[in-house]
């Protein structure tokens, strides 16, 4: 879909399994927020459709939203309202029974005192209100857009624990984040989105293991500078007889060369999701500002 002069999303075909944590990755402007807004029927697609729980997001949005907790990336609060009154208002409109104990537990775990007017809270504390309203109804599906933005590291940890607890209870979480280590730590699967198109969907461990291998070769002889100029191989560093390589394909050719110069040691290093993500984007974050 497109809107105005803005690029939207196109050819996004993805499904999220019940009970999994699915992470959506992409730089600013890639289309992550647009996908989440389409799911919440905040933006309506010009072509195609989205379904949640087998129901059409546009036509059966009310039934869907009864079972979904949503945290927008940027949201406003009623500035003159007291924090506790705001939470109660949202709870009353979510049309779900309120679990007071869980509600209280969320306040305590997020270290939030809701007795003040909302305009008096800092950005991070406002984010906590969004998190509480998304989680408090224990929805079957959580859609969280950058849930840890603006939070201190301790509270970020609490939010990730809440996400993992939701998964443990069999609930599904769909979330987007720029924080790749946190995505790698908690997500079952990730989707990488670029310029409005989903370019890869994979299990996190598969992605980190299969995408490319980072090798450190310690050789007996110093190889010439072009020794590893091979297709699918990038030399990322060198220190005398020690050569660092990222190998996407042609591992056998690399091994042949290594044997030719004499192998003393071969070490493979686990690749992080961040490195894979940067590989997809050529190390550049070159999307536009608007998500």
């Amino acid at each position: 879909m497109n809107y105005g002069s803005h690029r939207g999303i196109s050819d996004v075909n993805l499904s999220v399994e019940e009970g999994e944590i699915f992470g959506l990755l992409g730089p600013n402007g890639a289309g992550k927020t647009t996908i989440e807004r389409v799911l919440m029927d905040i933006i309506r697609p010009s072509k195609g459709h989205a379904t949640i729980f087998g129901q059409d997001c546009q036509n059966e949005g009310v039934a869907i939203r009864k079972r979904v907790g949503y945290l927008p990336s940027e949201f406003g609060l009623y500035p003159n309202m007291q924090g506790a009154a705001f939470i109660n208002l949202i709870a009353s409109m979510q049309q779900k029974p309120v679990d007071r104990a869980y509600h209280q537990q969320l306040l305590e775990r997020l270290d939030l005192d809701p007795s003040r007017k909302l305009r008096e809270y800092s950005r991070g504390n406002k984010q906590k209100f969004g998190i509480i309203t998304a989680f408090m109804g224990k929805p079957d599906l959580l859609i969280l857009d950058e849930p840890t933005v603006g939070l201190d590291p301790l509270i970020q940890k609490v939010v990730l624990e809440l996400v993992l607890e939701a998964k443990k209870e069999g609930r599904t979480v769909f979330f987007s984040s720029h924080n790749l280590p946190e995505v790698q730590a908690i997500c079952d699967r990730v989707g990488i989105i670029r310029r409005g198109q989903l370019i890869k969907t994979e299990r996190v461990e598969t992605l980190t293991k299969q995408q490319f291998k980072r090798m450190i070769l310690t050789l007996r002889q110093t190889p010439p500078i072009d020794a590893f100029f091979l297709e699918g191989v990038t030399e990322t560093g060198r220190n005398g007889q020690v050569v660092m390589l990222d190998v996407r394909q042609g591992l056998n050719k690399v091994m042949e060369k290594a044997v030719f110069y004499g192998v003393e040691n071969i070490e493979t290093i686990p690749v992080t999701l961040e490195e894979i993500f940067l590989a997809y984007y050529g190390g550049k974050n070159n999307e536009c500002d608007d998500d």
């Binding site: 009864k66 949201f75 609060l77 979510q94």
Partner: peptide
């Protein structure tokens, strides 16, 4: 403009 509408639209209201 103030971001309140997005929150309202995420509730089960038409």
């Amino acid at each position: 403009d103030r971001g309140i509408l997005e929150l309202l639209l995420s509730l089960p209201l038409t």
